[in-house]
């Protein structure tokens, strides 16, 4: 049983990395027309789990090219991922927010089916105002997929108030060599106005990309920051 869980874990991380690579390549415009269902090598529960983990980012290429998915295959897999992995009763706020983000992105970028999309669960955002900056930075980095243009405007507005704390978290993450957190924070900072020039965000993002290029999720975050917001080029 434990062996099976370990196998699923390894497999899920690998599939998440594969899908993240496919999305990043699509954002770079290197693989022609994008289709999420084409990026998925498998078509099982692990693939659905990978969609749930990456959240709204699996639809990022549609946000960039301004077009909805061609055909209903993408809609089908996203619906199944949402149905298979709803936030549990004891789910973390990050889990609820990422689920919301995927629903919001699906509504925005995928053609709506007759049944519509599931409702967005209420997500609490008091932590943005109350958490100390290291914890705020860590949590914000986990929600980097919501920094896609137009998604989660309320959360973005709340985070904008704490831009300086996010910038502080970015520097801290770089110093700790936590490239995934640094990339997520850099992506949020790329979206937010009034980022201090003294932060050196562009150079920082380039550095994070170079140092964290072995992690496909880091590459995805940094690529999204550059393609959507023109930072880190």
């Amino acid at each position: 049983m434990a062996e099976q869980a370990q196998q699923e874990s390894t497999s899920l991380s690998a599939v998440v990395a594969d899908v993240a690579t496919g999305v990043a390549l699509a954002l770079e415009g290197e693989c022609g027309s994008y289709a999420l269902s084409g990026v998925l090598a498998q078509d099982d529960a692990v693939a659905l789990a990978a969609i749930r983990v990456l959240g709204a980012d699996v639809l990022a290429p549609y946000a960039l090219h301004g077009g909805a998915a061609r055909g209903g295959a993408d809609e089908t897999v996203v619906r199944k991922a949402l149905a298979a992995y709803p936030p549990r009763a004891d789910a973390s706020e990050v889990s609820v927010w990422t689920y919301r983000g995927l629903v919001e992105a699906s509504r925005a970028y995928l053609p709506g089916g007759p049944g519509g999309w599931p409702p967005e669960p209420p997500a609490e955002s008091e932590w943005v105002r109350t958490e100390p900056w290291p914890r705020l930075a860590h949590r914000a980095s986990q929600l980097a997929a919501l920094s896609l243009p137009g998604l989660a405007p309320g959360l973005a507005a709340d985070l904008a108030v704490r831009t300086e704390d996010l910038a502080r978290g970015f520097v801290r993450a770089v110093r700790r060599r936590d490239w995934l957190q640094a990339a997520g924070l850099g992506r949020w900072l790329a979206r937010l106005p009034d980022v201090p020039e003294t932060l050196g965000l562009d150079a920082g993002l380039r550095y994070v990309r170079r140092m964290g290029d072995s992690d496909a999720r880091v590459t995805l975050q940094v690529t999204a920051a550059r393609r959507f917001h023109g930072r880190g080029a």
Binding site: Q4, A5, E8, S9, L12, S13, V16, S37, L40, D43, D44, A45, V46, A47, L48, A49, R52, V53, A73, T76, V77, K80, A83, A84, Y85, R88, A91, S92, V94, S95, T98, Q142
Partner: peptide, 23 residues
């Protein structure tokens, strides 16, 4: 896609999703 997607989700996989989301 090669075959029909199936949605049964193992508890271990669901827990892994939560872990990856909120590590």
């Amino acid at each position: 896609m090669a075959s029909q997607l199936t949605a049964p989700v193992g508890a271990a996989l669901a827990a892994e999703v939560e872990d990856l989301l909120g590590s």
